[in-house]
Amino acid sequence: MRRWLFPLAALAGLIALSLSLGAASFGEDAGWLLMVSRLPRTAAALLAGAGLALAGVVVQQVVQNRLVEPSLTGAPEAAMLGLLAVTLLAPGLAVAGKMLIAAGCALAGMAGYLALAARLPREDPMLLPIVGMVYGGILGAIGVWAAWSADLMQYLGAWRLGEFSGVMQGRYEWLWAIAALAGLLYVIADRITILGLGEAQARSLGLDYAQTRALGLVVVSVITALVLVTVGAFPFVGLVAPNLVARWRGDNLRANLPLIALGGGALLLAADVIGRLIRYPFEIPAATVIAVFGAGVFLWLLHAAPGRRHG
């Protein structure tokens, strides 16, 4: 239990900081402020970060490459295309419907990426993330073109640059679904670990490979959609948190999934707190902060690890 002490203490400190930080100061209505704004904002950052980190590790196991994450598979860009279509064609659709369409499009986007990835030689671990970047870039460009033509650029901007300043009670509760999905992933943690051994080995162990992979990717799509619709997209969280945990504790997801979720949540909350501090009382989007920090960690990973070779 001792090794949990430091991460948990750091997380508690971050939460306390996040709760006490803001343009409004605590007065008579401190409790109201906490309930309506500060707690929701803190919970949203933790849930979104945990979800993105878990989605990241699932994608990494599926493609057997540590340098890939959902935002390098076209999933968020595809989901944005779906949301643009909804905004144009059925602007009155309920949030649940938007989520469903965004998740479906994210899944289709990832399926396209996996079809591309299956044709790539696996010797060079850098190829998968680079192809993912190009693929996501193409989908993103289509989105920009569509949004520009339809005069929806402000929507696209909000999705592409995730931040938490708009989070209030009643406007983030969908993110709690991530907690349920995290529970589901914990139940199938062994199966997800076995996916990472590669298809032949996984099937030889009696795993229903196609079914497990499909289930994992559906969970990733739903998480992507939940986060995107509620608070916008964040790069690198799905890359950084799983990689740091793997370096520290290894690849056994039964033991490490809670830590990966915790790490992702702490990372995004830290990014949000830093974004609130830098130009206090103004704010910098958490996505911007995480992009700067995450890019640094990504470069370090590239330098330090050849990624994961494929069998």
Binding site: Q64, G196, L197, Q201, L205, G206, R247, G250, N252
Partner: peptide, 26 residues
Amino acid sequence: VALLQQSPALVSRLKVRELVGFGRWP
């Protein structure tokens, strides 16, 4: 039947005992 595929070159960070343990999964 158990198959070991050719050169599982995968650089996994599983511990040896964890990896061997997955043989018991079926």
